[in-house]
Design a protein around this nucleic acid. Sequence first.
DNA 1: ACCTAAGTTTAAGATATTGTTAAGTACTCA
DNA 2: TGAGTACTTAACAATATCTTAAACTTAGGT
Lengths: 225, 225
Amino acid sequence: MENTYKVLVVDDENDILEFIQYNLKKEGYEVALAHNGQEAIDVAKKIKPDLILLDVMMPVMDGIEACKQIKSDPLFEHTFVVFLTARAEEYSEIAGFNAGADDYISKPIKPRVLLSRISAILRRKNKEVAEPKLTVGDIVIDRETFLVYKNGAKIQLARKEFELLYLLASKPGKVFTREYILEKVWGDEVLVVDRTIDVHIRKLREKLGDEYIGTVKGVGYKFEL
Amino acid sequence: MENTYKVLVVDDENDILEFIQYNLKKEGYEVALAHNGQEAIDVAKKIKPDLILLDVMMPVMDGIEACKQIKSDPLFEHTFVVFLTARAEEYSEIAGFNAGADDYISKPIKPRVLLSRISAILRRKNKEVAEPKLTVGDIVIDRETFLVYKNGAKIQLARKEFELLYLLASKPGKVFTREYILEKVWGDEVLVVDRTIDVHIRKLREKLGDEYIGTVKGVGYKFEL
DNA sequence: ACCTAAGTTTAAGATATTGTTAAGTACTCA
DNA sequence: TGAGTACTTAACAATATCTTAAACTTAGGT
């Protein structure tokens, strides 16, 4: 599964904070909050967010000043800053202050726009690096095409099968507990009987051959070297 | 390295001019400014910009009139004109006036949208010489004519169909998620139910044949090699 | 050897995702 | 204005995938 990104939301209005927090959490982001620029910087230093959503107008320290400080701190070299602007008129301030933000989202904030913009910006971070193929013994696992090759022969896996194999093969030999597998492949909020894993293991063995996946009784499964 | 392009920005509000100028300069464009249609034409004759960003509503001479004059002048045969409209509704007016603009960007202007739109338009200009055809297997995709050939047989695609196919075929085999497809083909502002993609996929399969586009359930679609 | 706990296998539902059709909307062009 | 095209949506059908239960097998301790 994908990494969870940390987003720090900064606004002096609690309504807005809650609204954004709700929408981001729903999408699986880790969310932190701050009410002004000073607090934002303090929190940011602690949690090192991947992205900061920053209101322009705030008491104590406004968004522009906060942005300048953040952008000049090497600690936040890889942190994106996105302004929340209430009106078009604020453009001039932003441009004039030359604060170095990465993008702007104008209020009123629409959840869909917010989320797609955020995910687009964070994706930029990952630079569209082509997913490297995972090669273990005579098995090649290609995330990009969702295909698996065994000695060059193409094998189609269903999604859960693929993720399960990908996990096991990511560290050949290592034993993964059922608990861990459930968390990684299914996600923590899903409630699934862990017998389910067995069934998927079975299908994998069926498609790949029994020799690739080993059982360690009382512990879990592993990809055999 | 790419050439630096000259962009003329025309708007009666200085805030907006500064804002756009700031963003364009940051990306390495050469920027000229004008405050109304008449001034725009005067400046344009001097500097011969590659692209003109033109506000619709302006004193002295509005954007629509300016655009008509520009587009009818052979001097500006190779100059692109992009309208800045305050509201989406104004687009109908522009279309109605048939002023000959190449594109429009609606306010409030977002740097990301602005820049990607501009670079897309300018890219069009360069490629006028020789737009590379995309060839995958027995399918040839020609951006210049917006036509697709299957074993030499001409196939007409609608614009969304074309863009969708173009995206998938740009990396044959790679699975594209719905999210990614929406962002690339539809753009991030658009509110479209993602089932819409299915329908377009269906039409593509209808026109090309089922064998070219594969489904990876739970993940997305891909162009089959 | 037996007993028990753990894992395997099968097959039948349940669920989720995608396919397909058809109808509504919006825009374009004559 | 009206026909035609493109796009979007909703509704329902089809199906791959996932999950569960239950019966079966195996491994290891006593």
